[in-house]
Amino acid sequence: MDKIRVENLNAWFGSMQVLKNINVSLKEKKISAIIGPSGCGKTTLLRCFNRLHELVPGARVEGKIFLDNTNIYEKEVDPVMVRRRIGMVFQRPNLFNHMSIYDNVIAGYLLNNTKLSKERKDEIVERSLRLAGIWEEVKNRLRDYPSALSGGQQQRVCIARALAVEPEVLLMDEPTSALDPISTYRIEETIRELKEEVTIIIVTHNMQQAARVSDETIFMYMGEIIEVGSTSQIFTNPKQKLTEDYITGKFG
């Protein structure tokens, strides 16, 4: 089953086109990795999925992205509603420093003034932090502020915050690029476990990471998708010369 289908997507920063005629489908409850050299448009593509790209001054998108058969770029679609269904974890942890760890996890509800009972809040906080693999580490300091946590811990709370609102799709933009190996390992474990819950699209320029965690791999180069396939196929038997050169490290 396809969860997301991209049709003829183009994106610009000002007059510079950074995505060129993207066409790709992403399977439900699978992990898809987007790989490619720095600057090839991975982040931009990811930010088109939750309509964040268009918020950058001068940025523009054309084309269609279907989420369960509705085009999220249709005029009558509210981007805020799209973002409630598609969560995102950014390259660097970006917790709200003026809110406690507990409040950060349920920020999706709190900031929207959604009323929840105390029990329900506790339940969501625990469930999300467990899913993100950080419950044991923070359960006794939920009232602390996020600045008391390490970068790796903050990033996992960011994952919990994204999961708390029960998104159907989770976008992750190089979630471990700023982290140490142990935190990276933990987050990769978390990602593999989350597959049962959500459709995951992860950007990484670390090929080992793509190979370790993903089911499907998308290789991008200079704003275009060069090859899409199962991760094992892409890494053992790439069809395109460019893909092979990239995964064998001829350029990066």
Binding site: R92, L95, F96, H98, L110, L111, N112
Partner: peptide
Amino acid sequence: PISLREAAYALGIPKWKTILRVVIPS
């Protein structure tokens, strides 16, 4: 930082609520 606003937008928080509850408190 813009990253804080984007964190709120990505959670499906409308812009005005983001300003009121994230930007101004920060």
